[in-house]
Amino acid sequence: MFHIHCPYCDEWREEEEFHPRGQAHIARPEDPAGCSDEQWGDYLFFRDNPRGIHHELWVHAVGCRKFFNVTRHTQSYEILETYRIGERPRFTRDNPDGVVASAPESLDDSDIATAAQEVRA
């Protein structure tokens, strides 16, 4: 049972409130008519099934009804981050540790601790 941080409600919420909607960052081709059958078929039917870091589209269905993205490890089921539509993931297959030069928008343990402290205060 996942615990998911909704980037719009800015809270950790129970999986029951969410629906998964498959792989993230599947953009509809700009010019569908210009696509070959194969290209359109790829867009419609073909999805990654990686062992490791995977970006997924979820919706906070029983909540704010907003779609957002989740970076999840498909073996440990750990959720490394959630981010809004239009934002780029920090954790990727090429950058599994989420190393960034600039200040990242991260969701790790320190955030749980910070959130808890805020709650307490």
């Binding site: 409600c9 919420r13 129970e14 029951e16 409130e17 029983v62 909540g63 709650v119 307490r120």
Partner: peptide, 13 residues
């Protein structure tokens, strides 16, 4: 109450 203070509202299951 620490997590659900007065003045809060959520949509939930």
């Amino acid at each position: 109450p620490r997590h659900f203070a007065v003045g809060k509202g959520v949509t939930t299951v």
